[in-house]
Amino acid sequence: DLAKSVEFYSELFGWTVQEEGGDNDGLAYRRIASGDHEIGGFIELDAEGVPSHWIGYVTVDDVDSACGRARKLGGKTPVPGTDIPNVGRFAVVSHPGGSYVSPFAPHELEITVPEAETIPGRFCWNQLMSKDPDAAAEYYQGVFGWTVTEQDLGGGKYWLFRSGDAPAAGMMSINPQEKYPDFWMPYVEVHDVNETCKEVAELGGQIMVEPSDVPDLARIAVTADPTGAILGISTHRGR
């Protein structure tokens, strides 16, 4: 429900949403901005039985090469390399554990790729929830060339992916007995996690994981919008 998603997030985060012109295979597309900073988009789902969800993009030099590496490592390419006129080339690859991500190669100088920032209203982090973190780490290292290190955040083991020296994403383990597959969960920075959770409920969303503290780092929670899409929220300390 594209209209419901637009209304919910516009109210919750103060995002402005603009209709995108051009051909998107007949699907409605909306561009999202936080202030004057473009951060993402909404697109209609035409696949029956696929729930609403967020999908992250990883910049690569060559989309088709990334797809080839994914297939060699047991992944699939449900959306093969596809050109977006005047924007770039993208695909969707799936890890054997079930998580989906989109390799993306922008046309040089024609688009600015949004970066994770701890500014309220903007995406600040991406985290993989995996039933088999070791296998997932090997897969994503092979596809994107990331390195991975293990950390202890006080509540269990945490895996940090890096692209060169820069943090790229994180990973936590989930119970292998869960019925749902691995999934990526983006985070949006907010002024106050507790207050935002109240607003989520008032706007018809759900709190999937109540607010909690990551020692010396941030306060976080996990939400679901009225269409079911899962999204983390965080307030970083010292921001």
Rank of each mutant, 00 (worst) to 15 (best):
M185S: 06
A137N: 10
R31V: 14
I230Y: 00
V222Y: 02
E11F: 13
V222T: 13
T112A: 15
H107S: 10
G14W: 15
V17F: 00
L109N: 15
V222E: 05
G121F: 01
L12Q: 04
R162Y: 05
G41M: 12
K179W: 12
D23K: 04
G88T: 10
G142P: 03
N126W: 11
P167I: 00
D64W: 00
P106R: 03
W146N: 05
N175S: 15
V6D: 02
S5G: 12
H236W: 06
V148R: 01
Q18S: 12
V190P: 04
L27E: 11
F144E: 02
K4A: 12
R30Q: 13
A137T: 15
C124Q: 09
A221L: 06
D216H: 10
A105I: 07
V143K: 01
S34F: 01
V93L: 11
G41K: 10
S212L: 15
T149Q: 08
A47W: 03
V58R: 14
S10M: 04
W54D: 11
K198M: 05
R30N: 09
T235S: 04
C124G: 07
L2A: 10
G97W: 03
E7C: 02
T77F: 01
I43W: 00
I39F: 03
N175R: 09
D182A: 03
N86M: 15
D182E: 06
V200W: 01
S163W: 09
Q18K: 13
R239G: 03
L2S: 11
E189T: 10
P80H: 02
A224L: 12
P215L: 12
V214L: 12
A91W: 01
G170I: 05
S65P: 00
L27F: 07
E117F: 08
L73K: 07
H53T: 14
D182K: 01
Y9D: 01
S5N: 06
P78C: 00
D134F: 05
G145C: 05
T196K: 00
E150F: 05
L27P: 03
Y180Q: 14
W159V: 02
D25A: 08
Y29F: 14
G170L: 04
H191W: 00
D1T: 15
P226T: 12
G156E: 11
A91N: 06
E20Q: 15
H37E: 15
E189M: 06
L203I: 10
A66I: 13
G56N: 07
E199I: 15
I119M: 07
G145T: 06
E210T: 10
L217M: 15
V214D: 02
T227C: 14
M208Y: 03
D23Y: 01
F144W: 04
L109D: 13
C124E: 14
P80V: 06
F13M: 11
L45M: 11
G74W: 08
F123L: 08
C67N: 06
P78S: 04
G205M: 08
I111A: 14
E150G: 10
P181W: 08
M172N: 11
A137V: 15
Y180F: 13
T59W: 06
P226N: 08
G204L: 12
K179F: 15
L217Y: 09
E178C: 08
G97S: 06
D216I: 02
G204F: 02
W125R: 13
I207M: 11
